[in-house]
């Protein structure tokens, strides 16, 4: 990290001590499922949060002590790990990919169900014998999980990091297999791919920053309890 970045972080450190709690939420699919959870824990974001034309990234809520930031799902974990956000909502796919020791994931919110799976073209899968693999090439957004998973089976996985449209890769000749999130399997099917193995079942978790939990135990504990209740009720 550059000196300047460090200085900025350090300044932020100083001014952060008594600031409101920041909740980082992911954009997109999960956010829709998260709204009822926010309702039941009693967090109501300001109107701009639901306005598709709003360019704001940081939102006030009905609670003066809680703010919301909306970022990409991978960035939720980064914000929380660094303490820039105190609470966040992230899938365990993201948590497994980064494996930050500074993050606790105390509540499974039971939303955003999907799975992380290996897929390959239908034509390939017919004659494929995974037990003979020693090296495979895989397009994925999750190079760490993928490498770890195959290393355990003694297979070297060469990962091509893509940020989206993984399903294109096999048909375009980039590589033959992909590791990606699958919810209904519709996209795979439409692209002539079949799932051959599940790496992990994925749901969204409430995540919390370790330092925040240790230095503001009552406040953080209360929110964890509220989210836990909401997920039990759902």
């Amino acid at each position: 990290m550059s000196q300047a970045a460090n200085d900025i972080m350090d300044e932020a450190d100083e001014s952060r001590a008594n600031e409101p709690l920041v909740l980082a939420v992911p954009k997109g699919r999960i956010l829709k499922e998260l709204r009822p959870v926010l309702d039941s824990v009693g967090i109501e974001p300001e109107a701009a949060f639901d306005d598709p034309n709003s360019r704001a990234l940081r939102f006030a809520t009905n609670r003066p002590e809680v703010e919301i930031v909306r970022v990409r799902s991978f960035d939720v974990a980064t914000f929380v790990a660094f303490g820039a956000a105190h609470l966040g909502v992230a899938g365990n796919d993201v948590l497994m990919e980064f494996d930050y020791p500074e993050i606790y994931a105390p509540v499974d919110l039971g939303i955003g169900y999907c799975r992380l799976a290996v897929a390959e073209p239908e034509s390939l899968s017919a004659g494929d014998d995974p037990s003979r693999w020693s090296h495979i090439r895989i397009a994925t957004k999750y190079p760490n999980i993928t490498r770890r998973h195959f290393a355990r089976r003694g297979v070297q996985a060469e990962c091509i990091k893509l940020n989206g449209a993984m399903e294109l890769a096999p048909n375009m000749g980039l590589c033959r297999r992909i590791v990606d999130l699958v919810s209904t399997g519709g996209t795979l099917k439409a692209n002539g791919l079949v799932e051959i193995e599940t790496l992990a079942e994925v749901t969204s978790r409430l995540i919390v920053n370790r330092t925040a939990l240790k230095t503001r135990p009552e406040q953080m504990g209360q929110w964890i309890e509220r989210f836990a209740e909401a997920s039990r009720a759902a």
């Binding site: 001014s15 952060r16 001590a17 303490g83 500074e102 330092t211 240790k214």
Partner: peptide, 11 residues
């Protein structure tokens, strides 16, 4: 034990 300070990242 681990020592923290409110608002200081890391231990």
């Amino acid at each position: 034990f681990t020592l923290f300070a409110k608002g200081v990242r890391g231990e």
